[in-house]
């Protein structure tokens, strides 16, 4: 642990990790893109660029993390968030004095299969984080989505609603229904089955955007170390290796950048376009300050 921290500080100094909190030069949002192989180092560098863990997690906070652990799939197959990223985020939250770290996940494959196979369950051993499927009876609360055009109510896990610090940590991948699964889409792995089925029936892209008018993560970290180009979201599919993670406080901007890794124009993805138009964030990359760091 001590060694890691020292290494991290060295690396941070080398990369010139001066926080870019406000968007610079008339830009509307900042996206930090960290390129490298060591996800732990990349995550810490990226967060440092956004002001450091202290800017997001305070002592006594209830922290909720939403990785993607939806599928019976190994880390190498790229259907789930890399376990190292989730673990490091949990360790940093512990270090920052988080009172509680919850990882509620409503997976598509049975949780007893998906959680171990994803590597995330094992990666959390020895931490105080709790990875679990919310109980269908009392694990969710129905909330209003006042700004929603189609999605007006949603059932959301209690721990997500009660979190002081909410971190969205998806994996970037192809998605049959939504074209791409990125950060805004990731909430579908959180809400109840009833809610997410409604979204498919009523207008998927609009509902994804609607929900993001309501649920605002403090930090978005998109795992694009490897990205699934087809047969998503479950895979196995063809993989590409951008070796990047994408960090932002603006989910629309983060998704817009991530879409370019798949050679998509951001506004070709329905929920990014709608999210931009609804003012959730900035999906126009010409107005986004993209900061690149090499780790």
């Amino acid at each position: 642990m001590e060694m890691q921290r020292r290494e991290f500080i060295k690396a941070a100094v080398a990369a010139g990790a001066v926080p870019v909190l406000a968007a610079e030069g008339g830009k509307q949002a900042t996206v930090v893109v960290v390129h490298g192989k060591d996800l732990v180092k990349m995550l810490n560098l990226g967060v440092a660029k956004l002001g450091g863990w202290g800017a997001f997690i305070h002592k006594g906070d209830k922290v909720a993390i939403k990785p993607n652990v939806a599928w019976y799939s190994t880390p190498a197959q790229g259907a789930n968030t890399a376990p190292e990223l989730v673990r490091e985020c949990v360790l940093q939250a512990e270090k920052a004095g988080a009172e509680k770290i919850d990882i509620p996940e409503n997976p598509c494959a049975p949780e007893k299969k998906a959680f171990p196979q994803s590597g995330v369950q094992d990666a959390l051993k020895g931490t105080k984080a709790r990875l679990f499927r919310p109980n269908a009876r009392d694990g969710y609360r129905a909330v209003d989505v006042p700004k929603g055009k189609v999605c007006k109510t949603a059932e959301v896990p209690n721990e997500i609603l009660d979190a002081d610090c909410l971190i969205n940590m998806p994996v970037a991948k192809h998605h049959g229904g939504a074209t791409l699964s990125l950060s805004m889409k990731n909430w579908m792995g959180s809400v109840s089955n009833k809610t997410r089925r409604g979204w498919h029936r009523d207008g998927l892209h609009q509902c994804i955007a609607d929900f993001s008018t309501f649920l605002k993560p403090k930090l978005v970290v998109i795992d694009a170390s490897r990205i699934m180009l087809d047969h998503g979201p479950q895979g196995p599919g063809t993989l590409a290796y951008p070796d990047e993670i994408i960090l932002s406080t603006d989910p629309v901007a983060a998704d817009a950048y991530a879409a370019t890794l798949f050679k998509h124009k951001p506004f070709d993805i329905g929920y990014i376009k709608i999210g931009h138009e609804m003012g959730i964030g900035c999906g126009d990359l010409s107005k986004v300050n993209v900061v690149r760091i090499e780790a």
Binding site: G176, G177, H200, G270
Partner: peptide
């Protein structure tokens, strides 16, 4: 509608 949940889930 954009759906294909069946494609999503099919192992």
């Amino acid at each position: 509608q954009y759906c294909v949940v069946c494609q999503e889930y099919c192992p």
